[in-house]
Amino acid sequence: MDQIRKSTAPTIKDERAFHNVALVLMILLALYCLAPFFLMLSVSLSTEHSLSTGGYSFWPREFSFAAYDYLWAKRFTIGRAYGITIFVTVVGTITNLLLTSLFAYPLSRKDFKPRNVIAFIIFFSLMFNGGLTASYIVWTRLFHIKNTIWALLIPGSLMGGMNILLVRNYFNANIPYSIIEAAQIDGAGVFRIYWRIMLPLSKPVLTTIGLFAALGYWNNWTNGLYYISDTKLYTIQVYLKKLMDSIAFLKSSDIASESAALAYKAFPMESARMAIAIIAILPILLVYPFIQKELVKGLVIGGVKG
């Protein structure tokens, strides 16, 4: 690369201009993508007074931590929603990875005869679905998962057909059949091969799928919207959604131990709203720099298929 650039450098004046224009445009795009988050942050750090006189702005006119202070006093309510989100994300992601890889392994074995029939069952579930109404009635009338933790874990998100196909293809393409044969000769059974050989050797694809599953669980608000009305089971996303419906919800959801502390605090309505949103993004923001490479890789694989 560098060699090419050096050898042709004198003849490509217009190319340098091109590079610079592209760079400027992309820096502007990056700022455009980030600006809305700054607006939220700035609102959450403004005094209620400055917001009501001057409105929302990209820089706090009067700086204050009142919103975060208020949320700290409400830490048990918000902590609970947070805890449920973390629980659902961790349990859901692990179960998802187990189900997906368990299902993908037999499909990858050439000596497993029904594998084509079962692959078709997956394909068909990807092409055709009964729609929300039918799913909703099945989950609520048949399985009665309304207002249970299962509603946050199971419908729609526990196992994805596309991921099964991705993992199966990974098994086929990257794990030589000779390794499995060797293990079989040594007397390893199907489960042992799955657990000791397939899983450790497919860490890259499982990491990618796991990250997307975790992100999906963290960001999922529709299952809470459809199936949860018990405030005790609110995830942070559902909590936020209710907050957007009515800011008064923030006050009404106090639990007893907090009421006394909150009674003495002014209610920073506008800034507290944005502060909770910032708190909900924070975990993603913190891990994002470390996982973005994996996510990008996943988007390239998944971009075409699904």
Partner: peptide
């Protein structure tokens, strides 16, 4: 996985 597919995908299809 089959149990999940039946509950999550195939029962709603009959729905």
């Amino acid at each position: 996985g089959v149990i999940y597919l039946v509950c999550n995908n195939y029962l709603p299809m009959f729905g």
